[in-house]
Design a protein around this nucleic acid. Structure first.
Length: 316
DNA sequence: GACCAGGTCATCA
DNA sequence: TGATGACATGGT
């Protein structure tokens, strides 16, 4: 099935920028799982799945969902196709740094992920690294999630997806109910380290009904943030990630070590600001970038990370 | 083998 | 309130 959006939407930047950890590019399509559905998607006219300069200010997607066919409402929701990107980008472009980041990674878009998955995934992220987080999320899903097996059918072949020699097997991210019997030691054995107790605690918190994500979605940002921070292991940064990536709080501005770095380099070096605490930085950013600060955060994060990758390549 | 990684918590001034 | 070290593990 096809759908068109009236602006540039770049899947590579969107999946690689660090907000989601489980998308893979294989045989002509990106594939990933959300809400128990396997999604295959690509930009029409971009069969290599990598970004390219595109002067055309619109994007056409071709997608396929399984087991439910042509699940358009899932696609619209997960990919946040209701976001008014021209307006959002205009509103966060306050300076040269943002302009550069947007110019370079145009098409980077926020996703609407599942809240429970975001909560657990970002607990994994504490003092870890993106490759290890990705690995942890995949291993965790394989152990506790539902197996989804997909064999290429005629329709997919007609769409240009190469035939998979074996059925493709992926695993959904487990829900809290699936995890109610998991022990802390079991989680430690997956390599989660000191995060195991937090994850176990978060699972119990959700299962006990103390944390209702749909209530959080309807709450005002600050209240929802405080509520999330009642979970042990969830501090300001992880709370902001969950709010931004899964609960529609686009003003959330997670401050991690990379964001701290770029804010100090580009926004605070020339200004006489002595208080550079994470709280001060987040408060500044929400006020400065406004109600779509979260979009600014993701562009800045990706921009700064890629800058570092570039440095490493030069040195090596 | 030291150092670092999408942080958070407990402790102490 | 604000600074400091501990927390596990894996990659470079």
């Amino acid at each position: 099935m096809r759908i068109e959006v009236p602006y540039i939407y770049n899947l590579e930047h969107t999946f690689r920028c660090g907000q989601a950890f489980r998308w893979k590019y294989e045989k002509g399509f990106w594939n990933g799982i959300t809400n128990g559905e396997l999604i295959f998607i690509r930009e029409v006219g971009n069969s290599k799945g990598i970004s390219k300069g595109n002067s055309n200010e619109k994007t056409e997607f071709e997608f396929f969902t399984y087991p439910k066919k042509d699940n358009l409402s899932l696609i619209c929701s997960y990919f946040r196709l209701e976001d008014n990107m021209p307006l959002i980008l205009k509103s966060i472009t306050k300076d040269k740094t943002m302009r550069n980041a947007i110019e370079k990674y145009k098409g980077l878009h926020l996703l609407r992920q599942e809240p429970f998955e975001s909560l657990i995934t970002y607990l994994f992220s504490a003092q870890s690294s993106i490759p290890i987080i990705s690995r942890n999320v995949e291993v965790f899903s394989q152990k506790y999630g539902k197996r989804i097996e997909y064999k290429t059918d005629k329709k997919m072949e007609n769409m240009g997806l190469e035939k998979y020699s074996d059925p493709m097997i992926r695993y959904s991210f487990p829900n809290a109910e699936d995890l109610k019997c998991v022990t802390e030691n079991e989680l430690r054995r997956l390599g989660l380290g000191f995060r195991a107790k937090w994850v176990k605690n978060a699972i119990d918190f959700v299962n006990s009904g103390k944390l209702d994500f749909e209530e959080l979605r309807d709450m005002e940002y600050g209240k929802a943030r405080n509520k999330l921070m009642e979970v042990k292991g969830v501090g300001p940064k992880i709370a902001d990630c969950v709010l931004l990536f899964s609960l529609d709080k686009l003003e959330a501005f997670p401050v991690d070590r990379w964001i701290k770095r770029i804010l100090e380099e580009e926004y605070f070096r020339k200004r006489k600001v002595t208080d550079k605490s994470e709280k001060r930085l987040a408060d500044f950013a929400r006020e400065y970038f406004g109600k779509y600060a979260g979009y600014a955060q993701e562009y800045l994060f990706y921009y700064r990370r890629r800058l570092e990758d570039g440095k490493k390549l030069k040195v090596g």
